[in-house]
Simulated assay, not measured.
Amino acid sequence: MSNKNEIVKEMIFPIGDKNNAFKDYFVGQSYLNMLTTERVGIGNVTFEPKCRNNWHIHHKGGQILLVTGGRGYYQEWGKEARELFPGDVVNIPPEVKHWHGASKDSWFSHLAVEVPADGASNEWLEAVSDDDYNKLK
């Protein structure tokens, strides 16, 4: 999927608005459509090509990603990046430093499921450098 019109046509859930509330934690443009905030937060997050979020840690609850469109990456600190495609599921345990985002040439979309836990929080860290990102295939 190389352009916005193509991914919007194929999306199961609406793309949402520009993710301005979290723009300081992304390199590039992302979009967010919160599907529900009751009991379990689930957001449809869409990334333009080359867009990725900063390294971050989910304290207590963790997160689950359900890939719904395009091609992207998930990487845990100290490990190789994992390429993601529609249908992939990523279970992110609490306290694991990681990032996720689009490939250089594709839009990318996933449902982000916040695993509920007492005292859960999200800690945003440094951006994924262009040098590190550009090493991905």
Rank of each mutant, 00 (worst) to 15 (best):
N5V: 07
N5P: 02
I7E: 04
V8T: 13
V8E: 15
K9V: 13
E10P: 11
M11Q: 15
M11V: 08
I12K: 15
F13M: 06
F13W: 08
F13R: 06
P14C: 05
P14I: 12
I15C: 09
D17N: 11
D17L: 12
N19Y: 12
N20S: 15
N20T: 15
N20I: 14
F22D: 11
K23W: 08
K23V: 11
D24L: 10
Y25M: 02
Y25R: 01
Y25W: 03
G28P: 01
G28D: 03
G28F: 02
G28H: 04
S30P: 07
L32K: 13
N33R: 03
M34S: 08
M34P: 10
L35A: 02
T36Q: 01
E38C: 02
E38Y: 02
E38T: 02
R39E: 03
G41P: 02
G43Q: 08
N44C: 11
N44E: 03
V45C: 01
V45D: 00
V45Y: 00
T46Y: 05
T46C: 11
T46S: 04
F47G: 03
E48D: 14
P49K: 06
P49S: 05
K50M: 13
K50D: 13
K50Q: 13
R52C: 07
N54V: 00
W55N: 10
I57S: 09
I57L: 10
H58K: 10
H58G: 12
H59A: 02
K60H: 10
G61C: 05
G61M: 02
G62D: 09
G62P: 13
G62I: 07
Q63D: 01
Q63G: 01
Q63E: 12
L65S: 12
L65W: 06
L66T: 11
T68P: 14
T68V: 12
T68N: 14
G69I: 00
G69A: 09
G70P: 05
R71E: 14
G72D: 01
Y73M: 05
Y73A: 03
Y73L: 01
Y73Q: 04
Y74E: 05
Y74V: 09
Q75M: 12
E76P: 10
W77R: 14
W77I: 03
G78P: 05
K79Y: 11
E80Y: 04
E80C: 06
A81V: 02
A81Y: 01
A81N: 01
R82A: 00
R82C: 04
R82V: 13
E83N: 07
E83S: 10
L84R: 10
P86E: 05
G87R: 01
G87E: 00
G87I: 00
V89D: 09
V89G: 04
V89N: 08
V89M: 14
V90G: 06
N91R: 09
P93C: 08
P93Y: 06
P94T: 13
P94L: 09
P94M: 08
E95I: 04
E95T: 07
V96E: 15
K97S: 13
H98W: 11
H100S: 12
H100R: 11
G101L: 07
G101V: 07
A102D: 07
S103Y: 00
S103I: 00
S103C: 00
K104W: 00
K104Q: 14
S106P: 03
S106H: 08
W107R: 08
W107A: 10
F108D: 02
S109T: 14
H110G: 07
L111C: 08
L111K: 13
A112F: 01
V113G: 03
E114W: 01
V115R: 10
P116K: 06
A117R: 13
A117C: 13
D118E: 13
